[in-house]
Nucleic acid binder design. Structure first.
Length: 568
DNA sequence: ACCCTGACTTAGCATTCCGGTT
DNA sequence: AACCGGAATGCTAAGTCAGGGT
């Protein structure tokens, strides 16, 4: 696949800002067309059955499919849905259906439940057939040719229509996400490639040949009016190189971070308020790994903030609390409406500055009123080429992993214990970056199951120990080869069971500590994979224990590149 | 200086897959 | 063979940041 070069990521890169010379692909896969419900499945309005027009019925099914979700009980969701649903109705339907509370979708909902149950019950052969068809589509549409490589495409299927589900308190939840047609689609490919054909009887919106970008297909989504793209898989050359570059930038920050830190500490004393604000914000970004915090259009999205957009109401100052001085309490909703809560002591100067920033302000006022991400990033750019706020997150995440691995790995431990250490180091990073998850619904049960296994293993162990003891006693009396051998066998059995027990206990510890923490995001986006590869090589831990197949594909560049001496 | 948009990365949850157990 | 649970994968929303226009 990579031709005469061993490492495709060592091929020459373009210096003129172009991303490719040749790009050929088959275009997107559209969502399957709507299939009307069988006539026996009824919708009821005000208790009476009512046949809906196909467009109105389709939108109704979107709601019916979500009936069990608490979304559908929320006022905003219902209001947005109803408004958009009415747009799809015929004028007769519109005049009849005026109150969502009088709509009964339960038959539709039950019908879909039966269907999904039936899908699960399909025979092996039927499932196999579907699998093969999916594989065929993947082979046809899931790959493209970019320059000399056949590359996997990330998301070649167009998002199907449905009801928009925002995260957190989103003002647009419940709105109709409309169906995307060929006429909405912009194709990007090279002139000299075989252009993808639109489905019979349709046309693309546009075919362009822009090699300054990496996307293959784009369309404009109707909820926020933003553009969506089809791009390559993370295993592709173009993504891998970019990823590598990202970590190289973070490593350059490592070289000058001391200088930057002493500079922003100096700036806490500046005569100029804007410089003090910039310096305190940067301190937060560095110390707490906060995101930059762009401004957002009010009312268009959920109310979330990052560092530069923090408001007065998001922090509390305690000159003294719990025996600590100069404590700042953060409490705000960040990206994806995930809560950030932290109470930390800060330097006296920072504290005094924060008091100053808060003077004469209302709770809803900006904490940093002389600062935004653009000002901050322009400043950072002057300090180091390529430096932006998010580089601090990458740098601090990766350096933390490296330090924690050094601290936590003990040479004499066995492989499961080493992996626990790795996960703990990973966890330290996830906590730093505030990567949370909802505790899995099955968490308690799965912990219980594991405990049952541990108990059983303990019983098994004491049985094995008892047997060993009696075998030893036996051997002492008889002193023959056969009984000696029996002792050895029993000893081995005890050892094996001890090892199994220890494995289970490690697993339980790991799972418990991981209850509300998501490791995946930092592993995939913040940790220089070369640190992990080097650690695996150093301690003879198979890389498969740390990265699954997909991750190994994404990090192929690092797996080839890093030896055990790699230092971030 | 400010605003807007396009391109790209980062994010958590939902769904599917798969291998072990009953 | 059916079932189950955890891991892997898929999905798409929600960020960051640069660049162009006014």
């Amino acid at each position: 696949m990579s031709g005469p070069l061993d490492y495709q990521w060592e091929e020459e890169r373009y210096t003129d800002g172009s991303k490719w010379r040749f790009l050929e692909h088959k275009g997107p896969v559209f969502a399957p067309p709507y299939e009307p419900l069988p006539s026996k499945v009824k919708f009821y309005y005000d208790g009476k059955p009512m046949k809906l027009s196909a467009p109105a019925e389709e939108v109704a099914t979107f709601f019916a499919k979500m009936l069990d979700h608490e979304y559908t009980t929320k006022d905003i969701f219902r209001k947005n849905f109803f408004k958009d649903w009415r747009k799809e109705m015929t004028s007769e339907e519109k005049s009849k259906i005026t109150d969502l509370n009088k709509c009964d979708f339960t038959e539709m909902s039950d019908y879909f439940k039966v269907q999904s149950e039936a899908r699960k019950q399909m025979s092996k052969e039927e499932k196999q057939k579907i699998k093969e068809e999916n594989e065929r589509i993947l082979q046809e549409y899931g790959f493209c040719v970019m320059d000399n490589h056949r590359e996997r495409i990330g998301n070649f299927r167009i998002e199907p229509p449905g009801l928009f589900r925002g995260r957190g308190d989103h003002p647009k939840m419940g709105m109709l996400k409309r169906r995307i047609r060929p006429e909405d689609i912009i194709i990007n490919c090279s002139k000299d490639s075989k252009h993808p054909k639109p489905p019979p009887g349709t046309k693309w919106k546009e075919v362009r040949h822009d090699n300054k970008v990496t996307w293959l297909v784009s369309w404009t989504e109707n909820i926020q009016g933003s553009i969506k793209y089809i791009m390559l898989n993370p295993s592709s050359r173009i993504k891998g190189e970019k990823d590598w570059q990202k970590y190289e930038t973070a490593r350059r920050l490592k070289k000058c971070v001391d200088r930057l830190r002493s500079q922003y500490r100096d700036d806490w004393k500046s005569k100029e308020m804007r410089i003090r604000q910039r310096a305190v914000a940067l301190y937060f970004i560095d110390k707490l790994a906060l995101r930059a915090g762009n401004e957002k259009e009010e009312g268009e999205t959920a109310d979330t903030v990052g560092c530069c957009s923090l408001r007065v109401e998001h922090i509390k100052l305690y000159p003294e609390i719990d025996g600590q001085e100069f404590v700042v309490e953060f409490d705000f909703l960040g990206k994806d409406s995930i809560r950030y809560y932290n109470k930390i002591p800060v330097e006296k100067r920072v504290f005094k500055n924060l008091q100053l920033f808060l003077e004469n302000k209302q709770p809803e006022d900006d904490l940093f009123d002389r600062l935004n991400t653009s000002i901050l990033n322009k400043h950072l750019q002057e300090l180091m080429d390529g430096l932006t706020a998010k580089v601090f997150r990458t740098y601090n995440a990766s350096i933390t992993l490296q330090q924690q691995l050094k601290e936590l790995t003990s040479p004499e431990e066995n492989i499961p214990a080493k992996i626990l250490s790795y996960n703990r180091a990973n966890r330290a990073v996830a906590i730093l970056c505030n990567h949370q998850r909802a505790p899995p619904k099955t968490f308690e049960k799965s912990m219980q199951n594991l405990q049952t296994k541990i108990d059983a293993k303990k019983d098994q162990l004491s049985d094995a120990r008892r047997e060993l003891k009696s075998a030893k006693a036996d051997a002492k009396v008889r002193k023959d080869e056969k009984t000696k051998k029996a002792v050895e066998t029993k000893k081995k059995a005890v050892q094996r069971i001890e090892e199994q027990l220890m494995k289970l206990e490690v697993q339980a510890t790991d799972r418990e500590e991981n209850k509300q923490i998501a490791l995946g995001t930092s592993k995939l986006n913040y940790l220089d994979p070369r640190i992990s590869v080097a650690w695996c090589k150093k301690w003879n831990v198979p890389i498969e224990k740390i990265y699954n197949k997909t991750q190994r594909e994404k990090f192929a560049w690092a797996i080839d590149m890093a030896d055990e001496d790699f230092e971030f």
